[in-house]
């Protein structure tokens, strides 16, 4: 049993990290009042950009490649999210349709470019993050090997970003303003806050984090880009965002929960104790539990109130 836990927990953390950072991206966007169905697409373009950058630079840049690849992934996510921001904030377009267009555009463009540049729909990389034991911390009995042994350093990067985000959103003026735009843009506007700018900021940050999440997927456990490497992770992040009640610590919990479910589902083939559990239960679990959670939350509407509504100055 201990061995099983020892093998599941570190792997779960590896799966949780990208999920968490993408869901956090969704949080910024929705808190500012823009629904972001396009997380999947923004993650995809980040994943592709990271893979492409690594393939073309892994010979010349050496060890720095993997970190720069994450930067490139982040920028790619920002670039794609700009279109979503432009449509939803400046043009008052339907945010769900715009997000869907972003997803389709990203899925098609990345494979188009992959075929054009490398001749196949897959891009394999030779440099990536390697699992290491964190010095000193991994020596702590019990918790050490579980949380700090055999881990990707990116996981701690993600955890740092979530702590920072909590501080930014709940302890600074910027955070209060951003959240106000998602709750009641009209009163935010009347207090002199530029709602459009805030919403642009929210969407662009969400693109950055989703892109970074895609980069982390490629640079840690996937090690190659293809459509199947991230199939549906952006939507799973959306589920984590909802199940986490649109709050940083909430999505930390829900991402861990879903990440573990994903790991157990993937491992069920090799673990004797889980062999007889049909994978349908583990695989559908995050989505089913999110629907159940939505029913339970329904009386106390947990989400940002104005999320999904274009800001129309003339409507009060």
């Amino acid at each position: 049993m201990w061995n099983l836990v020892m093998s599941i927990i570190p792997l779960s953390l590896a799966y949780t990290a990208p999920l968490l950072i993408i869901a956090l991206g969704g949080l910024y966007s929705e808190r500012s009042g823009v629904v972001n169905i396009g997380l999947e697409g923004m993650m995809g373009i980040g994943a592709f950009a990271a893979a492409l950058f690594t393939v073309s630079m892994q010979g010349t840049l050496g060890g720095a490649t993997i970190w720069l690849a994450l930067v490139v992934a982040t920028l790619a996510g920002v670039a794609l999210s700009f279109f979503h921001a432009f449509a939803s904030v400046s043009l008052n377009a339907d945010q769900v349709i715009s997000g869907t267009a972003v997803n389709m555009f990203s899925a098609a463009l990345t494979v188009y470019l992959a075929r054009w540049i490398t001749g196949s729909a897959n891009v394999q990389i030779k440099r990536f993050f390697i699992k290491t034991d964190v010095p000193f911390l991994s020596k702590i009995p019990i918790i050490g090997p579980l949380l700090f042994g055999n881990a990707y350093i990116t996981t701690y990067l993600v955890l740092a970003i979530i702590v920072l985000s909590w501080f930014l959103l709940y302890r600074t003026r910027f955070g209060l303003r951003l959240r106000a735009c998602g709750e009641n843009p009209h009163s935010a506007d009347s207090m002199g806050i530029n709602v459009k700018n805030m919403r642009y900021t929210g969407v662009l940050i969400s693109g950055a984090l989703a892109g970074l999440g895609g980069g982390i997927v490629i640079m840690t456990y996937a090690k190659e880009f293809s459509q199947l490497t991230y199939n549906g992770l952006g939507f799973l992040a959306l589920a984590a965002l909802i199940f986490g009640k649109w709050k940083p610590w909430g999505i930390l919990g829900s991402s861990l929960f879903f990440g573990t479910a994903m790991t157990v589902a993937n491992m069920s083939i090799i673990v004797p104790a889980l062999k007889n559990v049909p994978n349908i239960f583990l695989n559908t679990f995050p989505y089913v539990i999110t629907l159940v959670a939505l029913v339970l939350f329904s009386s106390s509407s947990a989400g940002p109130k104005a999320s999904g509504e274009p800001y129309d100055v003339s409507k009060r």
């Binding site: 043009l91 869907t100 389709m104 463009l109």
Partner: peptide
């Protein structure tokens, strides 16, 4: 690459949604 068609469809959706533009 045949994904071009899917790109075109995505762009069409984008403009059809961004009617204001």
């Amino acid at each position: 690459p045949n994904e071009l068609v899917q790109i075109i469809i995505a762009v069409i959706i984008f403009f059809a949604a961004a009617t204001q533009l």
